[in-house]
Nucleic acid binder design. Structure first.
Length: 908
RNA sequence: GAUCUGCUAGCUCAGUUGGUUUAGAGCGCUUGCUUGACAGGCAAGAGGUCACAAGUUCAAAUCUUGUGCAGAUCACCA
């Protein structure tokens, strides 16, 4: 069989992905196996794949593929999120380009456009995931706004309303003037910004007599603000009640500059005396704290803004101006009137909308809220008691802090794309009554019951215009995917829920993770998943977050074209420990690609061997096979531990080293027959079997190349003198293998291994390296046969079983066990064993001396540190006997080594 | 401002309950190799006073405290 010397991913990846799809290997149905369930963090339906998705989904696929090969019924459910704000913004933009205003066409027409947009642009990202090799059960693909999910959301809303957990109220909310909607606290990002602090004069209202206390030469006070435009809505000025400087203001009124309105001076301990001038202007309509003070002191609230951030009728001459333009204009006017004391540079944090980046405006409005206190309590409990484990654990702190300080969740959005709030309004005797029901029909029935004779038709009911926060659907995801809201007792939800692992980025720990836990408790009385694996953030070489706007993110599809999906997957995983940011550099994909190629070439080697059934297995091959089996068992144990602890990059690295170093560099070299000679059948079969198991171990990380290699390994070539019967059988086996998949094989499990054999091999490897080193430093050709003298007996050298291998790999003609030093030879030491390689050529005495002296120096230093411990009575008496014994052994070894080195030096 | 996390080789990270570690890996680097699987390779090397300081201990990369630096989360300072 001709196999190309370079592995070409493009030639095989699509082939195998389609093969897996055809065989329905990703599909899961409940059965009697143990389930292993993962739900995808649904990406935005109209989004495209970025590096964060690559990392996240690679990890999911590794876990899912591994679970599947471990005999579990693995189910990875894909889907997309309707992404209310983001998608609506895209559609609004698209319409704008066509000259259409959303409001002109109305809700129904707009939604038609939105659905059309979703059909056109939706799901690209899921197609891209196939390229990565994601083994999702595509038959289960869901969308947060498909029928099942939509209905589930509505039902949950109604249910929570009936439980009294959802309420509607007028509150100060975070208003996004660009998206024209309220957003939740979590959607506000506070960014440091360089602002100005304006000091403005508020004159005393002279209608009132001045008291005799305090500063008399001034008839104004100075108030500092970063937002001078809001003075248009000022309804008070506040100072600290204990502030000496302002006692004279008690009971007075001041004139709001520019506006000319007379407002009271109030006193409240809220004010920080140290900040600014110690006097605070109060604008109840446009600041949360001012709002609270306004409520406390019964102050009027004057709203000066329109929803889009421009000034309204209360803005007087600034009407229709944008808030930031107004800030400039009003300052100019105030300066003209000499009402500005000074302006300072000032750094503060300004809230921006997560989605639109617009500066958030606190706004008083009627919104729907979900009470969080009780939900939060349960959600905290299950993480605190480790029913749900976070990886890494540090995120527990962040989680706890958020839940302990939680506020009610504003769940209504002034948008159209989303789940429309199932609340209906009805005028009853001039009073607006609210009916919450899953449908207009149900609302009508309830209205008839509650207000007999008032309603005559469904159309009389007016449905709430708002939709729900996107996260109000995602928080049900692990349940709604299995239809567990509508049919809580169905087979699927009972089988697949709770899911096993959730893999997500830490930035949605509150948005999504915490809320899913709440929903799980509320609707299943059970956690939604057992483990949460937080990935890091993918950054560029300079440590910047990868983003579209910076243009520093490579296109994942192009990367996969270049390095193969396996190469990119490996690149991502090699440097991505849980929770640690991942400094991504294309070159790490190269390492992945090279590794795939390495395995490929190992296959070429093995498949190129001629097999002889007559040949008996040599003792060297026997020990090689035995060692490789043990080595694999040892690494398997480590890999299992790594997976248990979600240390994926460690697991991968361990597999990588097992494959590259142990298997390719050592094992294959050990058993490789001389050119032109055949290999014995027993060793060949063992090699194939080991190679197979290696591909199983690697498959979760690099699914394509391992599938390809595995198939080629299965493919048996005809052997010499094959009779008809065995040819037929071989042909059948080949056909059977061709229709099978590595995905259906069983992951090997760790078994007992003999550490002594592994140690013996390590000694042999060190000996080989020692001889090779001599070749290197002496400039000897690898082809020149050498003699090796080892001081001591075979047993001492770690048993002679590896002697044949040492001879083969170090090109040593003979190994002699002797009881004294060898003259005219170069030496090296393996532990306390002296080894000599006689030189026919002249030995550079000075160089040898230098080398030995350095070694001696190290050994003496080592001995000194050991002696320091052993010379300490407290150590000898206080430390455990075992530890002291170890030190004594170290001492003996070091002394022996020093003696040997000294003797060698003397010899020179 | 509060809380948390980290600081180990040029880079990215391991180092489990202090004791076979005067510290390991991968990549990178250096020096040899047209070695019948692979230059996307092979072989052999070099490279670290474990951020700093004090303390606890027979023993500290590991525990305690402080300092510095970096990052994260939260917070109503106008």
């Amino acid at each position: 069989m001709e196999i190309a010397s370079k592995y070409d991913p493009r030639a095989v990846e699509d082939k195998w992905y389609n093969f897996w799809l055809e065989k329905k290997l990703f599909h899961s149905e409940p059965d009697n196996r143990r389930p292993y369930t993962v739900v995808i963090p649904p990406p935005n339906v109209t989004g495209v794949l970025h590096m964060g998705h690559m990392l996240n989904n690679t990890i999911q696929d590794v876990l899912v593929r591994r679970a599947r090969m471990m005999g579990k019924n693995a189910c990875w459910v894909p889907g997309t999120d309707h992404a209310s704000i983001a998608t609506e913004a895209k559609v609004v933009n698209m319409l704008k380009e066509k000259g259409i205003d959303k409001r002109d066409i109305g809700r129904d027409e707009f939604l038609k456009y939105a659905w059309q947009w979703k059909e056109e642009h939706g799901g690209i990202i899921l197609k891209q995931l196939r390229k990565l090799g994601a083994s999702c059960d595509w038959d289960r693909t869901a969308f947060t706004m498909d029928d099942i999910r939509y209905e589930s959301v509505i039902r949950v809303f109604v249910d929570l309303y009936q439980k009294g957990l959802i309420y509607r109220g007028v509150r100060m909310v975070n208003w996004d003037p660009k998206a024209l909607t309220a957003v939740s606290d979590e959607e506000v990002i506070y960014k440091e910004s360089h602002s100005k602090l304006f000091y403005l004069r508020y004159y005393i209202d002279n209608e009132q007599p001045r008291s005799g206390v305090g500063v008399k030469d001034k008839d104004y006070i100075v108030v500092a603000t970063t937002r001078p435009e809001t003075i248009l809505g000022d309804t008070a000025v506040c100072v600290h009640p204990d502030d000496e400087r302002f006692q004279w203001l008690k009971g007075k009124r001041v004139i709001v500059p520019s506006v000319g309105r007379s407002v009271p001076v109030i006193m409240d301990e809220y004010v920080d005396r140290e900040f600014g001038t110690g006097a605070l202007k109060i604008t109840p309509a446009h600041d949360v704290n001012d709002y609270n003070l306004g409520m406390k002191y019964n102050l009027p609230s004057i709203n000066i803004f329109n929803d889009n951030g421009t000034l309204n009728d209360n803005g007087g001459k600034y009407k229709d101006m944008d808030r930031f333009a107004c800030r400039k204009a009003i300052m100019k006017d105030l300066e003209a009137e000499d009402l500005v004391e000074k302006v300072e540079d000032y750094v503060n944090k300004v809230g921006h909308s997560e989605r639109t980046d617009a500066v958030i405006e606190p706004k008083l409005s009627a919104q729907w809220f979900l009470k969080m206190t009780d939900l939060a309590k349960k959600a905290l409990e299950v993480v605190e008691n480790n029913d749900i484990q976070f990886h890494p654990e540090k995120f527990k702190n962040i989680y706890r802090h958020w839940l302990e300080n939680i506020k009610d969740w504003c769940i209504s959005r002034q948008l159209w794309w989303g789940h429309r709030i199932p609340a209906y309004y009805l005028d009853v005797d001039g009073k607006r009554e609210t009916i919450v029901a899953a449908s207009r029909e149900e609302a009508f029935e309830e209205a008839c019951r509650r207000f007999p004779g008032v309603v005559t038709s469904k159309e009389q009911l007016e449905q709430d215009e708002d939709v729900l926060d996107t996260w109000f659907s995602s928080w049900l995801w692990p349940i709604s995917l299995f239809d567990g809201i509508r049919n809580p007792d169905n087979e699927e939800i009972k089988y697949y829920y709770p899911t096993d692992d959730l893999i997500t980025a830490p930035d949605i720990i509150f948005f999504w993770v915490a809320r899913m836990i709440m929903a799980g408790e509320e609707y299943r009385h059970e956690v939604p998943f057992r483990h949460v694996y937080f990935t890091g953030i993918v950054r560029d070489k300079l440590g910047r977050k990868m983003s579209k706007s910076l243009g520093n993110s490579p296109d994942p599809i192009e990367l996969m074209e270049k390095y193969g999906a396996d190469g990119v997957r490996m690149g991502m995983l090699l440097t991505a420990p849980a929770g640690n940011d991942l400094p991504f550099d294309e070159s790490i994909c190269e390492q992945g690609r090279n590794f795939a190629n390495k395995m490929w070439n190992a296959l070429r080697l093995v498949k190129g061997w001629k097999v002889s059934k007559e040949l008996n297995q040599s003792s060297e091959n026997q020990v090689s096979v035995e060692w490789m089996e043990q080595r694999m068992a040892c690494v398997l144990e480590q890999v299992e531990k790594d997976f248990d602890q979600y240390r994926l990059s460690e697991a991968l690295m361990n597999c990588y080293k097992l494959a590259w170093d142990d298997f390719c560099s050592w094992y294959l070299e050990m058993v490789k027959p001389a050119f032109g000679s055949p290999i014995d059948g027993e060793t060949y079969q063992a090699t194939i079997s080991i190679f197979e198991r290696l591909t199983y171990m690697l498959h979760p990380f690099m699914p394509f190349v391992t599938e390809e290699i595995w198939h080629l390994l299965q493919d048996e070539a005809p052997c010499d003198g094959e009779d008809e019967e065995s040819a037929r059988k071989r042909e059948m086996r080949n056909q059977l293998a061709a229709s099978s998949s590595i995905m259906m094989q069983h992951m090997p499990v760790s078994v007992f291994f003999d550490q002594r054999l592994l140690d013996a091999c390590t000694t042999a490897r060190e000996t080989i390296a020692g001889v090779r080193n001599i070749r290197n430093t002496k400039g000897l050709s690898p082809k020149e046969e050498l003699e090796l003298y080892i001081v001591g007996s075979e047993d001492k050298a770690g048993n002679g079983r590896f002697d044949g291998i040492i001879k083969k790999l170090a090109n040593v003609k003979e190994i002699h066990y002797v009881d004294q030093k060898v003259e005219g030879a170069v030496s090296f030491m393996i532990g306390t064993t002296e080894c000599f390689v006689p030189m026919s050529q002249h030995i550079d005495v000075e160089a040898e001396k230098k080398k030995l002296e350095e070694e001696l120096k190290y050994a003496e230093g080592f001995l000194a540190s050991v002696m320091k411990k052993l010379g300490n009575e407290k150590f000898v008496n206080g430390a455990p006997e075992k530890v002291v014994a170890v030190e004594r052994q170290k001492k003996a070894d070091a002394e022996q080594k020093i003696a040997a080195l000294k003797a060698q030096l003397a010899n020179l």
